[in-house]
Design a protein around this nucleic acid. Structure first.
Lengths: 136, 136
DNA sequence: ATGCGTGCAAACGATTTGCAGCCGG
DNA sequence: CCGGCTGCAAATCGTTTGCACGCAT
């Protein structure tokens, strides 16, 4: 009752680009990626498609420190968090049952309800660390 | 060696507005607040001041889901997180030693280094819950 | 055929920046 | 007096939206 989306080649292209990597990418990056690849898609369409996918829980979204949105197709749909490489976007899905309960507990103890949490880990992945070592 | 900031009345106004509340506020909100209060300050100056304060660790910054930056003067300078009311911005400073170590551990186990984490809890504070109950 | 989907360009909202004048030290 | 600070408006930047046309169903 929701998947009334038409399968157009641009949607397929965006989905394909997302499926092809496990790294978080911005709408603009995906747009360029598709252009370079030959599957040019309008930037607006990329945004609209990502928006739809995100709404349907098909992709995960997170914000950079400077407010840019990054998207990634995740293996699982259930609640989880990410460990993201701040230089290449490479991400690993993680979950922390301990943290989950901690969040709820802390919230309740302060009289808050409807607790939700934003938990993302940022770091430098092994590959980028190695690359940095070589160049620097 | 860093506090080379001149004490102007606009800086005092912004700092004052921040000191007056324990709620996270956007630059625009602070700007309006000051205008209404009579201490009109240019929006650009508000941004510049907040930027300076944030850089100096004087205020904490966090981003809304839609990318807007919120500022708040916190009691402590050390690393900590927040439990923020999503409707009024009221915030409580929290820390979770367990979470801290968990973050580092998870990061390391995946080969990542320089681990940093973003952890914010969102909820509805008691006051807003009561207010909502009355109106709804 | 029908209307959802697309591209393009204009519109937007948050934040930044260039510049001429102001004022704190 | 002097250089940092301010205000204003123009400029950025990421993202959204209006509109006329195209294509999937």
């Amino acid at each position: 009752m929701n998947q009334q989306l038409r399968m157009t080649k641009q949607r397929a292209a965006v989905a394909g680009a997302l499926d092809a990597t496990d790294e978080f990418r911005s709408a603009q990056q995906l747009h360029e990626l598709l252009r370079d690849r030959g599957d040019a898609v309008g930037l607006a369409t990329v945004y609209r498609t990502l928006q739809a996918l995100a709404a349907g829980g098909e992709v995960d979204v997170l914000r950079t420190d400077d407010g840019e949105a990054l998207y990634r197709r995740c293996a699982r749909t259930e609640h989880h968090h990410h460990l993201v490489c701040r230089s290449c976007g490479h991400a690993v899905e993680i979950d922390g049952p301990t943290v989950e309960s901690w969040a709820v507990r802390v919230g309740a103890s302060q009289g808050f309800s409807d607790i939700e949490h934003t938990i993302e880990l940022w770091g430098t992945c092994a590959d980028c660390r190695a690359a940095a070592a070589h160049s620097g």
